[in-house]
Write a protein that binds this DNA or RNA. Structure first.
Length: 574
RNA sequence: GGGCCCGUAGCUUAGUCAGGCAGAGCGACGGACUCUUAAUCCGUAGGCCGGGGGUUCAAAUCCCUUCGGGCCCGCCA
């Protein structure tokens, strides 16, 4: 095909001009929208993004979380609840009508004898957790045993959901209609499960698991019939027994049906869940179809979250025993810091949790943020402000003393609380709220015991440490002179101590003169490096060459102790 | 076999949906405050945005592919 030359030229011109035009339009667009966009570029917190999205669907929301209390509820589980709470708070902040609920799956069967259980629990495997005896004997049942400390921890985290217990919901009959529907539409449900999960559903499968009247287990029964009017289900159990149970508390829907049924019964509109449920063919996928097609309700907006990894040991999991329970953690770190850990990370990212030194940095970072927020520091961006707001555990009064500083105070005081209070006061902190100080002190001492890395630890030696033998004559002379001056002075502040030490290198200062005299040389001949002086101080008190910031470290001690210790060190003979 | 999430400075990460100069915090380094090693303030360095290819005037961002990490598809958040 041959086009005339002029046709080709005009085509070319048209194409070029269109191209140039698009370039022009784009740059024009950028000058207008680009600048506008810059002002809008502030990062929005993930919880607000979620709230914004769900608000477009409806203005009324039920945020649900649910955990099976089959073992110690750990920080990994906590992510679910804090995530839900963040979304919930954000919804409230945006003026939505919202409620936060927590569903404890107390009617799930005990899967196996976990490592922390005695062998005798073998006979309870297969029974609902609410019907298994409590391991310690003090709680109403097995589920309660793990639930109680968890709910207490939630309280401390400032999370106060309405609590539902699955066993009570079943026993009160809330599930009856859902059970009837599931039994009647058994084939449809089975079809969905096969289509979505790709698994074959066995011939005698039922969405409902009756609890055997004889052995009390719900994992070994088969449904043999049911009566919708009488609201009963017939079954046979592999224990040999056969019988009839009520739909009111006589059994439980299988998990993949229970979950969507619950969405419908309670009207759940947002729910975070672990990524295990999220993959295609997983329980969220089947649940979505079941709730839409069987229960005629919309599935909740999902918030899929990643696992929390413990140090280098891998994912936190009750079954592998890699677990730090929330209550354990709350003994070590203030609740708001735990919230902060979760709030600052997007749900789909793993969290590396290490209770050792990294925890110290985490606390530090949080405290820095808190201070900036309280002082209305202009360098604090909206995004960080939002993180702080969402990390706050309302109704909790926390000490203003930095965790790191308490690490030192606590060790100087050798854990004695009266002593700690004195030092706190001397360091210029408020001591009015003794409770909050005590709480922090307890956190810190637990942390030192369990997780602190060696470099953070020191111990004030009972007697002059052997290492003093390594000190030079100059260092010893300095300690002796320092003791004299401290003894003659009144109460000294951290700053005073600091300046005092530095005065050693100034010709004409009292300390400088005393050192020279003690060494029997002229002050002009005295050469002092402050580094050596600090080293002498740490050696005399701790037996090591370094320690916490010297000024306020010294001011933490009783004067008498310092005078005596430095004198002894000054005349120490190995 | 099929699917999901993550990979950006030494570390923790924002930015990815909607393509438009890759930003912070910590740490490190340098300096200041008569002020040390873990206070404060100021400053500096540090990046083939995991790799490769493609689309585009323009890619961390979209598409394909590949590697690494973590998971799921059995009723374990």
């Amino acid at each position: 095909m041959v086009f005339s030359f002029s046709f080709r030229v005009s085509c070319f011109i048209i194409i070029i001009s269109l191209y140039l035009k698009s370039l022009y339009l784009k740059s024009l667009y950028l000058t207008i929208v680009g600048n506008f966009g810059e002002k809008m570029a502030d990062t929005i917190h993930w919880a607000d993004v979620i709230a914004e999205e769900t608000l477009q669907k409806s203005s009324k929301h039920l945020v649900a979380t649910g955990i099976t209390p089959s073992g110690h509820i750990h920080i990994g589980n906590m992510r679910e609840v804090v995530t839900a709470d963040a979304a919930y708070r954000s919804l409230l902040d945006k003026g939505a009508e919202a409620e936060l609920i927590y569903i404890a799956d107390t009617y799930d069967p005990l899967r196996k004898v976990y490592p922390f259980l005695p062998e005798s629990y073998a006979e309870h495997v297969g029974k609902p957790l609410s019907e298994v005896p409590c391991p310690c004997g003090d709680c109403a049942n097995y589920a309660e045993h793990f639930l109680k400390p968890f709910l207490a921890a939630l309280q401390r985290l400032g999370i106060t959901p309405k609590v539902y217990k699955a066993d009570e919901m079943y026993k009160e009959g809330l599930y009856i209609e859902a059970i009837k529907t599931a039994l009647l539409k058994r084939d449809e449900i089975a079809k969905i499960l096969e289509e979505v999960s790709g698994k074959t559903v066995v011939e005698d499968w039922s969405p409902f698991n009756p609890i055997c009247n004889e052995c009390g287990k719900l994992t070994m029964t088969k449904v043999t019939g049911f009566d919708v009017d009488a609201e009963t289900v017939d079954y046979s159990c592999s224990c040999g027994h056969a019988g009839t149970v009520s739909m009111k508390g006589g059994g439980k829907l299988t998990w993949r049906v229970d979950w969507p049924a619950r969405w419908g019964i309670l009207g759940v509109s947002i729910e975070p869940f672990g990524k295990d449920h999220a993959s295609s063919g997983g329980s969220y996928a089947t649940g979505t179809r079941i709730v839409e097609e069987i229960y005629e309700h919309q599935p909740p907006s999902p918030i899929v979250y990643e696992w929390i990894m413990l140090g280098k040991k891998g994912a936190m999991s009750s079954s592998t025993g890699v677990v730090v329970s929330i209550s354990d953690m709350l003994e070590v770190v203030p609740p708001e810091v735990l919230r902060y850990l979760i709030i600052r990370t997007k749900p789909e990212k793993h969290i590396q949790f290490d209770p050792g030194q990294p925890l110290l940095s985490l606390v530090d970072e949080y405290e820095r943020l808190r201070t900036k927020f309280q002082e209305e520091d202009p360098s604090l961006g909206d995004f960080d402000k939002r993180i702080y707001e969402l990390s706050r555990a309302t109704g909790i009064c926390q000490s203003e003393i930095p965790f790191k500083q308490m690490v030192t105070i606590s060790q100087v005081a050798r854990g004695d609380f009266e002593q700690i209070l004195k030092i706190v006061k001397r360091s210029g902190f408020e001591t009015e709220n003794e409770m909050s100080i005590r709480e922090l002190a307890e956190n810190v001492s637990k942390w030192l015991d369990l997780y602190a890395p060696p470099f953070a630890k020191f111990s004030v030696k009972e007697n002059v440490p052997l290492q003093v033998a390594t000190l030079s004559d100059l260092q010893k002379a300095f300690l002796g002179a320092l003791a004299d001056i401290i003894e003659a002075s009144g109460e000294l502040t951290g700053e005073n101590y600091h300046l005092l030490v530095y005065s050693a290198k100034e010709a004409g200062s009292e300390l400088n003169g005393r050192i020279a005299a003690s060494l029997g040389i002229e002050p002009e001949a005295l050469e002092v490096n402050p580094k050596d002086l600090f080293k002498a101080i740490y050696t005399a008190i701790l037996g090591q060459g370094s320690g916490p910031k010297a000024g306020w470290f010294l001011s933490s001690f009783e004067k008498e102790f310092l005078v005596e210790r430095f004198r002894e060190a000054a005349v120490y003979q190995s």
